[in-house]
Simulated scan of single mutants.
Amino acid sequence: MTTAHRPTFDPARGKEAQRGVAYHQRLLPAHTLLKTRKLGQGGDADNQPRDLRAELLAAEAANQAKKHGRQTDETADAGANSKRPLQLEEGQDNPEDEDPEAKRRRILEETRDIDADSDGADSDSSEEESDEEDETAELMRELEKIKRERAEQKAKEEAAKAVKEEEEREVGIALGNPLLNPKAFNVKRRWDDDVIFKNQARGTEQKGKKEFVNDLLRSDFHKRFMSKYVR
């Protein structure tokens, strides 16, 4: 029985080679790492008690806070712990120790600046609105002018068209009456009315309807043949 169809697992060895010892792929070490169960795969880590209800409530609270843009207690505590109290700059007094009169004066100055800015903004906005109204009025005048010019042009075209139609109607009335146009009674003559020889072709005067005859001796072809060649 031949083994030519089988793959060679251990190839033929020749003489001593200089390349050293060669190992087959199946002889190399494999599966050297022992796999262990991880969390959630039913191992020893899953035996620890878990408060599933607390985890579910915490997840729902976090989701609701994310939807409404609020912070949960954990994030708020973390933010509060991460924030540091603001340090006053050098030379700046504590606001609580500030004189009430000086504080009132400072607030009035700030509000005065804000009012001045708002008045300037209002004046600028009113000027812009007036400019926009002027531009709108100018555009409306231009639009009315264009409409008026188009209406005049259309009226001129309609008047010219009406005049042309009236002229065509008058010409049709004048030439359409045969009593006013005696030239219309002239009979057109053929080009061969004055020739001397007319209808010279043989057989043109006997143009009758062809009839089918079952007898070959009485057919038109036989008659023409006999009259032409046998007399």
Rank of each mutant, 00 (worst) to 15 (best):
150 R>N: 02
81 N>S: 08
141 R>H: 05
81 N>A: 12
145 K>Q: 06
87 Q>C: 11
104 R>P: 01
83 K>Q: 04
87 Q>L: 15
90 E>T: 01
103 K>S: 05
131 D>K: 14
126 S>L: 14
136 T>A: 15
131 D>V: 12
92 Q>N: 07
132 E>L: 15
143 L>Y: 04
133 E>Y: 01
140 M>S: 12
139 L>V: 06
144 E>N: 03
122 D>S: 13
139 L>T: 01
112 R>M: 10
128 E>W: 10
82 S>N: 08
140 M>T: 06
133 E>R: 00
120 G>D: 06
136 T>C: 10
137 A>T: 05
102 A>T: 04
125 S>A: 14
149 E>F: 14
155 A>Q: 02
107 I>N: 06
118 S>M: 13
122 D>W: 14
144 E>F: 09
120 G>P: 09
129 E>I: 11
139 L>Q: 05
109 E>F: 13
156 K>Y: 04
113 D>R: 11
147 K>M: 10
144 E>V: 06
114 I>W: 09
126 S>E: 03
82 S>K: 11
91 G>M: 01
116 A>G: 08
158 E>M: 09
127 E>P: 03
127 E>L: 15
80 A>T: 00
146 I>P: 02
137 A>I: 08
134 D>E: 05
157 E>K: 13
95 P>H: 01
126 S>K: 10
98 E>A: 14
100 P>I: 01
120 G>E: 10
108 L>R: 08
98 E>T: 10
140 M>K: 03
135 E>H: 09
